[in-house]
């Protein structure tokens, strides 16, 4: 029998790495940059976070190291695409391949190392409250930060001048340049933010959720994050919804496998990816409106002329 409370708890934990990576990528894409290297930045974040946790014994330092790892990798992407004007799609794909390879190299000897425990935010008495306790109060700080980040990004994009400039740069870099905005600087900062988010997501995966380093452990979470952004029509709330849906199906299918339901395992394994994409495609099927929200300059190379 499947317990709904533990299912929801699992959902929240499983969805967090994807959510972090996706919300970072959303900001990057809103400035008009398509960084396909999310998977690579996540796994670098996972390995640097894990190594730091093992070596220093500090979970906080581990998360910071994960963010730094993702940021450094994203800075490579930023230099190549923004300063050297390389193709964003090819560079992003290369970044993923590079990240996966480098992470495997760095992580040699670490699988199975023992980790410091990730502290919970709320006292045990609050976690003991039936139903609400495990769902609301039983998580480490990062999970709450991830949801707060969604709110913050939504507020930033919708209600602040910085957000307006970000959207303007993603809409038409030529017009933004003509008005005197520093297109390349804004995009570079967004790329670094996206790298930090992806790296944090990766570190959460290795340090908090799995508590182990396994080669290739992100298993396509970065690609799901990319798909989430597009099918969520670049809307932060829909990214949150998509991430929870993905996390929910992932948690559910594991329980179904354990319960030995009469469905092929391969189908159950692939169900989170399938269901998430099908649902988001249905949500965003109104092409005209989805297209309006898409950054018009997405993936285009900006070169200041004249």
């Amino acid at each position: 029998m499947i317990d709904p409370v533990t299912l929801i708890v699992a959902l929240i934990i499983v969805s967090t790495p994807v959510l972090l990576a996706a919300i970072g990528e959303l900001v990057v894409e809103k400035t008009g940059v398509l960084n396909l290297g999310v998977e690579g930045m996540m796994i670098i974040g996972a390995v640097t976070g894990f190594i730091t946790a093992v070596e220093t014994g500090s979970v906080t330092l581990a998360f910071l190291a994960g963010m730094a790892g993702g940021m450094i990798l994203s800075a490579v992407f930023g230099v190549l695409t923004q300063l050297l004007l390389s193709n964003q799609v090819a560079t992003g794909l290369a970044l993923t391949l590079f990240g996966i390879g480098l992470a495997a190299l760095l992580g040699v000897g670490y699988p199975g190392s023992s980790l410091p425990p990730v502290p919970d935010l709320f006292p045990a008495s609050m976690q003991a409250i039936p139903v609400a306790g495990p769902i609301l109060f039983s998580h480490p700080l990062i999970i709450y930060l991830a949801v707060l980040l969604v709110v913050a990004v939504w507020f930033l994009l919708q209600h602040t001048r910085t957000g307006l400039v970000i959207r303007a740069v993603g809409e038409s870099h030529d017009a933004a340049h003509a008005l005197g905005y520093k297109v390349i600087r804004i995009r570079f900062l967004a790329i670094l933010f996206g790298g930090a988010c992806a790296g944090l997501g990766g570190a959460f995966l290795s340090v908090a959720r799995v508590q182990n380093w396994i080669e290739g452990m992100t298993a396509g979470a970065g690609w799901i994050a990319l798909a989430l952004v597009v099918f969520a029509s670049w809307k932060p709330w829909r990214v949150l919804l998509g991430a929870w849906l993905f996390g929910g199906i992932s948690a559910l299918q594991l329980r179904l496998q354990a319960a030995e339901v009469n469905v092929p395992v391969a189908l159950l394994d692939s169900s989170p990816y399938l269901v998430t994409i099908i649902v988001l495609v249905l949500i965003s099927s109104d092409r005209a409106r989805a297209a309006l929200n898409a950054p018009a300059a997405l993936g285009k190379v900006f070169h200041a002329s004249g």
Binding site: R161, L164, V165, R167, A168, E171, S172, D174, A175, A176, A178, L179, Y181, L292, N293, A296
Partner: peptide, 15 residues
């Protein structure tokens, strides 16, 4: 080249 189609008139002016 100096207006943003997907933004409102007021947002364009603010920029």
């Amino acid at each position: 080249f100096s207006l943003f189609e997907a933004l409102s008139v007021a947002e364009n002016i603010a920029l």
